[in-house]
């Protein structure tokens, strides 16, 4: 008992001050990419060639990037000889609509807005979620799980993962949704009492990720259930997931839509 108490003192207090202040991520962290089409020579599509998930599409108004497909893998950044794509430190990546995740030089990421007044009233201070891994690789799962540790302490926001869909207000889905998980996902969704919300975490759950168009997967959660919040990444940083959840619940002070932060 004595040793346990001494250990408690040694381990100290570890909970992040977020959202009161924004923690710094390590310098090589790869967040929201910025596109500078003015550097693109006509007809160059080297970034799109290199992209493993065809997230980049060159068009008349410059390159468009689907963050829902993006693996944040820097294959494009490295392939581009003109420096037109640059990864930034911005980890605020969550959006409410699939279309809002498609960005270009002239179209910024549509960051997640809060739920409507009624749902916010119901869930804003107490949100219980059932997690369904539908062929997730255990990286998104791990970074969702970590929200329960003392570092993020999800409980302080009234958000909790529960063991039964019947106790839940919604689902948090990871993975590209394999054919073999379709039925289980559908049944789990049906078991959640209405009104209910669905959160898709990671490139796989949004678009199929690296498995997009594989015959064994359904290209993400919205092939089976309606999705209310998308958190891009492969996997998203736990802060990106937490930021998305707090935006959805209207728990963050309103952040104006600004240009992405410069790299640190």
């Amino acid at each position: 008992m004595w040793k346990v108490l001494v250990s408690r003192l040694k381990q100290g207090h570890r909970t992040l001050t977020y959202p009161r202040s924004e923690p710094a991520l390590p310098a090589p962290y790869r967040g929201l990419p910025v596109l500078d089409s003015s550097r693109c020579p006509n007809g160059c599509g080297e970034c799109a060639e290199a992209c493993p998930t065809d997230a980049l599409v060159p068009g008349d108004n410059g390159i468009a990037l689907d963050l829902g497909r993006c693996l944040f893998c820097v294959d494009c950044e490295r392939a581009c000889p003109h420096g037109a794509i640059r990864m930034t430190q911005d980890w605020h990546l969550a959006g409410r609509t699939r279309a809002g995740l498609i960005i270009s030089e002239s179209k910024m990421l549509a960051r997640a807005e809060a739920l409507g007044r009624e749902l916010r009233g119901l869930l804003g201070r107490s949100l219980k979620l059932r997690e369904v891994s539908a062929a997730g690789c255990n990286a998104c799962e791990a970074d969702v799980n970590v929200l329960g540790t003392v570092v993020f302490d999800l409980g302080r926001f009234g958000i909790q993962f529960v063991a039964s869909p019947r106790h839940a207000d919604g689902l948090l889905i990871t993975g590209p949704v394999s054919r073999n998980m379709e039925l289980a996902l559908r049944k789990t969704y049906e078991a959640v009492p209405a009104p209910k919300i669905v959160i898709a975490v990671g490139a796989c759950a949004i678009s199929g990720g690296p498995y997009v168009d594989s015959p064994q997967v359904l290209n993400g959660a919205d092939a089976v259930v309606p999705v209310d919040l998308y958190v891009p990444g492969c996997p998203p940083h736990p802060l990106s997931i937490l930021d998305g959840l707090l935006r959805l619940l209207g728990r963050l002070p309103d952040i104006p839509e600004t240009a992405p932060r410069p790299t640190a």
């Binding site: 060639e49 290199a50 992209c51 493993p52 998930t53 693996l71 893998c73 294959d75 891994s133 062929a135 997730g136 690789c137 255990n138 990286a139 998104c140 791990a142 993975g175 590209p176 394999s178 054919r179 073999n180 998980m181 289980a184 796989c204 990720g209 690296p210 498995y211 594989s214 015959p215 064994q216 997967v217 492969c234 996997p235």
Partner: peptide
């Protein structure tokens, strides 16, 4: 339940997606 067709996806590689299958076949 988790079957995503990794080995089928790697056929005909190496290509731009191969490494991403490899990195996510067991993501931990």
């Amino acid at each position: 339940f988790q079957h995503r067709g990794v080995e089928s996806g790697l056929l005909g590689g190496p290509d731009k997606r191969s490494l991403h299958f490899i990195e996510t076949l067991a993501g931990d």
